[in-house]
Design a protein around this nucleic acid. Sequence first.
DNA 1: GCGAAAGTTCAAGAGGTTTTGAACACCTAA
DNA 2: TTAGGTGTTCAAAACCTCTTGAACTTTCGC
Lengths: 179, 179
Amino acid sequence: MKGYAYRSGEGEPSLQLPMWEALVTDAVGDVIEFWGFKRNHGRVWALLYVREEPMNSKELQEDLELSKGAVSMIVRDLEQWKVVQRVRKPGSSAWHFEAELDFMEMITRVLQEREGELIARVSEDLKDAENLARTSDVDEETLERIKRMRTLAGLMKQALDVFVKTAQLDVSQTRDLLG
Amino acid sequence: MKGYAYRSGEGEPSLQLPMWEALVTDAVGDVIEFWGFKRNHGRVWALLYVREEPMNSKELQEDLELSKGAVSMIVRDLEQWKVVQRVRKPGSSAWHFEAELDFMEMITRVLQEREGELIARVSEDLKDAENLARTSDVDEETLERIKRMRTLAGLMKQALDVFVKTAQLDVSQTRDLLG
DNA sequence: GCGAAAGTTCAAGAGGTTTTGAACACCTAA
DNA sequence: TTAGGTGTTCAAAACCTCTTGAACTTTCGC
């Protein structure tokens, strides 16, 4: 097994990531993508986390082979989500970024936000549908089926809330998990 | 509020969906999309569910404004996931489709499959990363951080399994929920 | 304040996924 | 067996999201 991530040709100053860092960042990228975030959000956070030492945009750009613009946008998102903090480093005029530890909390929080909006909208639409159907000459069983769908939406929300609670509980039980 | 879903021009035989059906199918489409399926999977299933009466490809195609090919592929998926059944209808040579009721079960099942593959792969990669890091001159704390990520992946799996159980339990408690 | 470096923005492009529809295959009924 | 309706496939098109990089703005050190 090679010790360095593959890169053909010899473009930049050859600052490629060691294989193990590539594996870690890609792993987190895959996980975060599963949850509907962007792969590179995960890669950036993961690199900051394993390195411990705050990194600047230039370093992130080179190590993860991202563009200037991409790094700027990604760290902005991560800051807003409070999983990355912007810090000054003595002797440098550039901002540096360091990983916060509440990554799991962020995933569940954002997930719950998205899900909340969705369920609110869907419930509203199903209510409207039910009312409209009632004013048309729709039989009782059909109305019943629409109602059942609303129940189902409610159950989905409940189940997802349980997921969020479980995730947060698990993490807090393993307090200092990532620290 | 209009009683019919909007459609400009006058293309097909004007077999547009009543507004309430459009609301229902779109609602289910949105939900299923949230879970990483295709919008039209949800729309097709939802229409079959509210209509109760089995429909053929042609009807699905016209009512939901899908192409012939799309309908073919979508019902194939839904059949494989066991949420739609193919039936014969007397007096017609075309296949008809009817909705099965275990929609929620299907979502959680597919979700758990996807998640299972993901976590297996990620855990494997993190293990490799740890081993590689160990053979390099990586300090103990860094190794510890990689280990903690593996733990985190495990917790995520646990939490998702709880979600799946909760969802299935909720539905079974409300047995005949959709029936 | 000035020049240089760092950071941001966004239109255009790349990349990936879904949908289309024409060609082909399959069935059914006669 | 055949004709016509039905069903499937898949390359191309449409669509949508993410990334790039040049232009621009802000910040820093002096």
